[in-house]
Design a protein around this nucleic acid. Structure first.
Lengths: 354, 354
DNA sequence: TCCAGTTATAGTCTACATGATTATAAGCCA
DNA sequence: TGGCTTATAATCATGTAGACTATAACTGGA
């Protein structure tokens, strides 16, 4: 039990983990649906087995002016997505099509995030399962064709507690901490109380622990479980929860964004994916600011430069730019060749928490 | 172009990458099907859009006597799998059901590997897409209920070039290297020849490069592209390829196993998943042998012990065992508590290649 | 013109982790 | 008893990460 709980894939499978926790602990809309559905569906299984609708959904990320952004449609509360249709050659190409159609934005780098299948979204009319394959895409804003159908939102609008570039944001200690402690103490048995407190402390770095920027998904799971975000819903709850101020999204889209952030924050440390978000020419400080925007924490400048330069990930162009205010900076470009030279060339970054 | 090619997710998406390469270069069964199908399907799309069969498929791993094994059915050439049916509460539970039914083996730890959707498996009768969600599962052999329906196969039967515990295996330098060079030189243009040579050198550590055990999938992709494994097929080929001696599997199951191996080899370095494969009590050498079995390379003993002990991942039981031949060894157990104490407690292992 | 402020860039120092190696202890078996 | 096995402790050299300092080059305003 403990074994399985703890060793589930950090990246995204925590979802399953927490679903399990929820369904085991008290009334929850999702968990209930789960049980009901299981009963009624079994009869149908023989008739119309294993048919499913497959959705493709994208977390498209860009960084502009040191602000990491995610591409949305609707009221800035929906991720671009669409069904995986037979005419699509591959899910990736299908995703490109949907995103371009809905936002006018062409995609470059795409990587699969996670396939969500255990949430109980049932097809509108018939008893049908919906499976969502989520993807992380990296681009630059400028590549947009000026379509106004879409919007770029700073991802810290949805996760204000994730930005630690100017120190721990007030919301963490002033709002989240007391609320989470409240939530922890609201558990019926002592074991759960202790476990909840510890989870919160680990995820948010309470009690002299260090902040770990990669735990974005775990943190979202916590505020969700503690019903501090709108998506968690407040129906049938005796004590209406006071929400933490943050922008919400439809369905579980915010959770998917959290999954994407966590993946990206982890990945920039061992693969040179940051460059997908950079313009062709850039200064080292611009590069640093981009990494800082993504990871949500500041980096020591000399160390950053040293690491980047000694890895031969970039090369000088000879040109300089004076747009930075102070002494003109060298303009660098990404050395694409590095990817052919070294096995799985990593971008080591000075982001290893103490 | 180069950007996207190189930055695709190493873990599994290399599949897409290489599919792309193949379809761009010469006749290939898969690539051709791709094109044909795209044409005929488009008409149907409006009528019966986005319906799909979803398959669950498992790479179940166990280690016995320093031999890493994968659970198979049939002629040791098939992974346990089955359709994701409406009666399944979640894909994980569905997978557990299928594996237990087909092999009699209960599963503990499960993590999602990758969702394959772009390969052109079409439903037998009707034009229908098949999506496979693959999972990596870790257990121990003893947990089997003695069902004879299944078989455990050393994964080095399928990938003989992956075991470097007694140095570089002869097959690499004596067979693979010349064949791959042959294949590289068989390309029509010089650029492709150079690129192929470099890919082979990186993946297999030729030309004084270091062996990187995590590149299992890339290596399989190479031998597949060079048509050195049976799955690649030899029909319609002027020069019948000479196969490298290795056990093959149905469809793309071997590729899925390669994906699982790569994931596991990477994961044991930063998360304490090895313990899922260990008995409750074990000696440090047994633990080391297990890690060595998985990674396919030897580890420095004192360093391994130091790393394991200082991370407080294990604790002494006080008991000792004399079954090891020499001086009796302390029996340890995994400290499950560590998972609650530390954020995302990692198992650092002295496997960082120089 | 000079100074304050900004950024760029080079270099230093320390602590610690890693890799390689050696030494000693404790059992078995011939 | 001695030689074999393995366990376990300790040492040493190397390299790297993190923190810090110093200098260079430009802008804009007094």
């Amino acid at each position: 039990m403990a074994v399985q709980l703890c060793c589930v894939d950090v990246r995204a499978a925590t979802l399953t983990l927490n679903r399990f926790r929820r369904s085991g602990a008290g009334p929850n809309t999702f968990a209930n649906m789960d049980h009901q559905a299981t009963g009624t569906r079994k009869d149908r299984a023989a008739v119309k087995a294993d048919e499913a609708k497959v959705d493709l959904i994208a977390v498209v990320v860009a960084v502009n002016d040191s602000e990491p952004c995610v591409l949305t449609i609707g009221q800035a509360d929906t991720l671009p997505s669409g069904p995986f249709a037979l005419e699509h050659r591959s899910p990736q190409s299908g995703l490109r099509g949907w995103v371009e159609q809905q936002t006018g934005h062409p995609l470059g780098y795409i990587e699969q995030l996670y396939t969500f299948a255990d949430r109980d979204r049932i097809g509108a009319e018939r008893q049908q399962r919906v499976i969502s394959i989520s993807y992380l895409a990296l681009t630059r804003k400028e590549q947009a064709t000026g379509s106004s159908k879409c919007g770029w939102q700073s991802w810290y609008e949805y996760f204000p507690w994730e930005d630690h570039r100017s120190g721990t944001p007030p919301v963490v200690l002033e709002v989240l901490r007391p609320r989470l402690i409240e939530w922890a103490d609201g558990a019926s048995d002592a074991a759960t109380r202790r476990e909840r407190r510890q989870r919160a402390a680990i995820a948010f770095g309470f009690d002299d622990r260090h902040w770990n920027e990669e735990l974005t998904l775990q943190r979202y799971e916590l505020v969700y479980e503690a019903r501090l975000v709108q998506e968690a819903g407040s129906a049938r709850d005796a004590s209406p929860p006071t929400l933490v101020h943050s922008k919400s999204m439809v369905a579980d889209h915010r959770r998917i964004v959290a999954t994407g952030i966590a993946r990206l924050r982890s990945k920039i440390k061992y693969r040179p994916v940051v460059f997908e978000l950079m313009p062709p020419l850039f200064t080292l400080l611009q590069l640093q600011r981009t990494v800082e925007a993504l990871s949500g924490r500041l980096i020591n400048k000399p160390n950053f430069r040293r690491l980047i330069e000694q890895q031969e990930l970039v090369e000088k162009t000879g040109e300089t730019t004076a747009e930075t205010g102070g002494r003109p900076a060298q303009l660098y470009r990404f050395r694409h060749a590095i990817l052919d030279e070294r096995p799985v060339a990593g971008t080591k970054l000075p982001l290893t928490r103490a």
